[in-house]
Write a protein that binds this DNA or RNA. Sequence first.
RNA 1: GGCUCGGUAGCUCAGCUGGUUAGAGCGUGGGAUUCAUAACCCCAAGGUCGGGAGUUCAAGUCUCCCCCGAGCCA
Length: 524
Amino acid sequence: MTYTLTTPLYYVNDKPHLGSAYTTLACDALARYQRLIGERVVLVTGCDEHGLKIQRTAEAAGLTPQAHCDAVSAQYQDLWKRWRISNDRFIRTTDPRHHSLVEQFFRRVESAGDVVEGRQQGWYCVACEEFKDDAHEADDPECPIHRRPLEWRDERNLFFRLSRYQGAIEALIAQPGFISPASRRREVENFVGQGLRDFSISRLNLPWGIPVPGHPDHTFYVWFDALLGYLTALLEPGDPPDLELAVSRGWPARVHVIGKDILRFHAVYWPAMLLSAGLEPPCQVFGHGFLTREGQKMGKSLGNVLDPAVLLDQFGADAVRWYLLRDIAFGEDGDFQQQRFLDLVNNDLANTIGNLLNRTSSMARRWFQESVPPTVEGRSPEHPLALAAAEARQLVLEGMARLDFRQAAEAALQLAIAANGFLNTQTPWSRIKQEEERQSVADDLYAVLEASRQVALLLAPLLPDLSARMMLQLQQQPLESGVMADPAAAATWLDQLRWGGLLSGLELPQPEPVMARLEPIPSP
RNA sequence: GGCUCGGUAGCUCAGCUGGUUAGAGCGUGGGAUUCAUAACCCCAAGGUCGGGAGUUCAAGUCUCCCCCGAGCCA
């Protein structure tokens, strides 16, 4: 079984923002975790490149839509590369194979009798790419989200007969866990409960889109073709554009991770489309929350947008990943606070985790021939730190599996705190002065080094870079959890998480801080 | 307008089916220590649990009303 997970396919209207980075890095952590426990993972990300909005944005910039998409899409690919996101695929909906799959998919839906012609009349928000039903009385209505004027449309479009799937969708969203977190389920239930209406899947005279086969002048509505990108993405590089083949490469997706704003498309429209085409719906749709900054919505008008590329340059991937994954409940809204960001990264990563390794390694080197001390007691599964490690491991595994990154991160941190506390109670630096304490000090240092190794292992999916630096300080092979990870070899992660794997006598390199403290920066 | 979810220490939040002095992290103050990245460890102060009424031997925890914030739908 392939573990397929997806980020949204980001709309190429503008350069990537922090919200996209947030989703993507959460997915990266999840993908790495799944690889580490031995799953064959396909992490899909990419760009959604069709629609009127794109066409207009391109025109405004004096570019062809394709040139515009190429440019923005390249920014995404570049950014993910710099963040070292382990996406196995990057799909663009302008990919020729995608066109072909959309056509195949459409034919299935059409032959299922789910495509009908209808008249679409109403006010349309180009920014949302959505009809608004609530703007009837105003003379010049504007979009409540974008505060931009709506445009009146009256055209004959093709409709997808969503209404036929009322029962099927009700049953689907009633499945526990299908919509996660559970707190978002009610919203969808309410929507579905009001009765599903057919929705238009084509646009007339919109050149920038995929033509609907058999219906001249119609192109597919962006939302119809975009989600299919998840399927196209499953094709391997040399594969012919065949829907059935794509499906066999890893459908259904185990989880679509999305922002809460597009929950409905993923939990209602998309599954219905899939059912119509005779395909399975995804196993889970996880809608995470939004990020604010210092309590305020980020937006161009406020000029308070955090640029993920700038954050990365300024603070590095570990710091930002840690803050977002460790401090914000994945699923709920979160607030990015500069001061807290600095405090947490410095406390947790530099002071607690980094310094733990540093101080311990330094003692071991000084008193035990620059290497891991020999041990009698340290390897015992009953050792207090062994017990702490076992608990941490349990919480990390459980947390990662549930996309509760915060629980996982805190558990790993907790182990480091326990190890620091252990050192302070044992005070090896004073006991080493008595020869008869030597073995006992060796045991203590061994246990703390082993605990540090466990921390490094547990951090592997969350902070792969820091994890690798820690492993090197402990003379260990860093974990490979990226796209090159070999599923067969990867399962050794769990083996390595057994207490006592660190070898005594291993030479320890000169300690170097694995995580530098961040300096407060003047506001930009 | 209907529905949903929140309002708990300076900040971010935990508090399950109601039950001893309401918890954690960060921040703040103090102590201890020197192995270490002025780090680690320990201790402390700080809350009329949005407001009001009610049920109960007992309510942050249940009921009703109100105020504030967020969201979904009309």
